[in-house]
């Protein structure tokens, strides 16, 4: 299959036009929170974008722990450098009135804690990174 070549042009502030020669669609887009958000033909796209200075995450000796859903951090029980055992609770989240612990899948050392109590976290990024 030949990948169609989509040509993007600016229509006005924030509004873009995208065309492959046969189809022409208008799009609204903005960059925020590390993603490009695109509203196109009644569909919403969140496309992660690379950031300069962004830290590589989730290498083969690292485990990035990401929540299943958007939630509020109600307790942070570890700090970077701390050794943890498999099954240890690292962070406790709350969403829809339910508490959800994030536990260590294996023993390791905490290399990063990307959240603080009271903050909101989303499935788009790890809350804790462990080195195994």
């Amino acid at each position: 299959m030949v990948t169609p070549n989509w040509i993007v042009t600016r229509r006005d502030e924030g509004r873009l036009q995208v065309s492959d020669g046969t189809r022409t669609l208008s799009a609204d887009a903005v960059i925020g929170g590390g993603s490009a958000w695109v509203w196109l033909d009644g569909q919403l796209f969140e496309i992660p974008i690379e950031r300069r200075g962004g830290r590589a995450r989730g290498g083969h000796d690292e485990e990035a722990l990401t929540p299943q859903m958007s939630a509020k951090v109600i307790r942070v029980l570890v700090e970077p450098g701390q050794a943890v055992a498999a099954g240890d609770t690292l962070v406790v989240l709350e969403a829809m009135k339910m508490e959800m612990p994030i536990r260590a899948p294996r023993a390791g050392t905490v290399t990063a804690v990307n959240c603080a109590e009271g903050e909101l976290v989303t499935p788009d990024g790890p809350v804790v990174v462990l080195s195994l």
């Binding site: 990948t3 169609p4 989509w6 040509i7 993007v8 042009t9 600016r10 502030e13 924030g14 873009l16 995208v18 492959d20 189809r23 669609l25 799009a27 887009a29 903005v30 960059i31 925020g32 490009a36 695109v38 196109l40 033909d41 569909q43 796209f45 496309i47 974008i49």
Partner: peptide
Amino acid sequence: LAAAAEAVAKSGLVHA
């Protein structure tokens, strides 16, 4: 459509 959205995202024309 996803390919078109990707093209928009990477066009360099999207404002922050």
